[in-house]
Amino acid sequence: MTNSVQAVAAVLLQARRDHQAADAAGLETLLQSPEDAYAVQEQVGRSADWFSTGVPLHWKSGGPSRSAALTHAGLPPRNVFSSPADARGCPFHHRLIEAEVALRLARDVSPDDAAKLSHEDAATLVDGMTVSIEIVDSRWQQFPETSALLKLADQQSHGALVLGEWRPFAARDWSRQTCVVQIGQGAPASFRGSLSLGDPAWGLPIWLRHVTRQGASVPRGTIVTTGTWCGMLRAQQGDKVKVVFEGVGEAEVQL
Rank of each mutant, 00 (worst) to 15 (best):
S83W: 11
E42T: 13
V55N: 06
A170Q: 11
M129R: 04
R172Q: 15
N3G: 15
V253S: 07
L75K: 04
L161A: 11
W140T: 13
A24W: 05
E100Q: 07
G193S: 10
L161N: 01
D36C: 12
S157E: 06
F81E: 09
I135E: 01
P56K: 01
A68H: 02
V211Q: 04
L103H: 04
P188T: 08
K116L: 15
V181N: 02
Y38W: 11
Q14T: 14
V244N: 05
C230I: 00
V218Q: 02
Q214A: 15
V243N: 03
R107D: 12
V131M: 09
G89N: 14
L149D: 06
V248N: 05
S196T: 15
T71Y: 10
Q237L: 13
H93Q: 14
S4T: 05
L75H: 06
Q177W: 06
L125Q: 03
T2F: 07
V248K: 01
G193Y: 07
G63K: 07
L13G: 14
G231A: 09
I223E: 05
T71F: 13
L31M: 07
V243L: 04
G62P: 09
A114I: 02
L197Q: 13
D23P: 06
R17W: 02
E246I: 03
Q182S: 13
Q236F: 10
T225I: 12
A148R: 02
R104H: 11
A216C: 07
Q41T: 05
D173W: 06
T29C: 04
S138E: 05
E120C: 00
M129G: 02
F169H: 14
R95D: 09
H158M: 10
P188I: 11
V224W: 08
I135W: 09
G159Q: 01
C90W: 11
V248W: 04
D173I: 09
L204S: 10
H93T: 13
F81S: 09
A7H: 10
E98Q: 07
V244D: 12
P84Q: 09
V44G: 07
W166D: 04
F191Q: 04
D127A: 10
A102E: 05
A170C: 05
T228Y: 08
A189W: 01
H94N: 14
V162F: 08
G62S: 11
C90P: 00
V8P: 07
A15M: 02
N79K: 02
V218I: 11
Q237R: 15
G45V: 05
